[in-house]
């Protein structure tokens, strides 16, 4: 098993922390993991992306040209990374604010209304967990939910642990988006 994932969007959308929760969940499931951010001033307000690799084997490069799973949360990220989905791979993107939709027939594309689903939850901070729910549902590798919860506990500071049920709810909401 090996999943090469990139999550890309605006700074402030929770891209990096989603990556961290995903990586920690993989770690709780006994996988080798890497989390490689684009870092620096570009994080603030500009675009941010993070590459997460989950694998049974030792991971070589933390930096990749192409991905099994691409999550794009704005137009720029979609334009940049849609061509980098490996043939047979998965592209998930939030349709809000997207005017140029990707046209590839060699990959599976999931346009989702993650923002809408988040608004239904009533807490905009849960946005990245809605997106992660969609990814967990779409990915070939089925990460057990109990390890995702463990990953959440490890990633979030103790004072935020009361938010774990909300996060869990958001993940389920995200999963449901794909089941529609």
């Amino acid at each position: 098993m090996k999943e090469e994932i990139i999550i890309a969007g605006f700074g402030g959308q929770g891209v990096l922390s989603m990556g961290k929760i995903l990586a920690y969940s993989g770690l709780m499931d006994d996988k080798e993991v890497t989390w490689m951010p684009s870092y620096g001033p570009e994080q603030r307000g500009g675009t941010a992306n993070v590459t997460v690799i989950l694998s049974d084997e030792r991971i070589s490069s933390p930096v990749l040209d192409s991905f099994d799973n691409v999550i794009a949360l704005n137009q720029q990220s979609l334009d940049k990374f849609a061509p980098k989905v490996k043939p047979g791979g998965i592209l998930i993107y939030d349709t809000n604010g997207i005017h140029n939709h990707p046209k590839r027939d060699d990959i599976t594309i999931y346009p989702i209304d993650a923002m809408g689903a988040t608004l239904e939850l009533g807490n905009s901070k849960a946005y990245n967990m809605v997106v992660m729910g969609a990814l967990l549902e779409a990915m070939n590798y089925k990460l057990p939910m109990e390890n995702v919860i463990k990953g959440l506990k490890k990633s979030l500071p103790e004072r935020h642990h009361k938010l774990i049920p909300l996060n869990e709810q958001a993940i389920e909401k995200g999963r449901a988006l794909l089941k529609k």
Binding site: E32, W35, M36, Y39, I59, P62
Partner: peptide, 10 residues
């Protein structure tokens, strides 16, 4: 290098 400084791993 900045990569091993900034990346997260197990």
């Amino acid at each position: 290098d900045g990569i091993v400084g900034q990346m997260m791993e197990k």
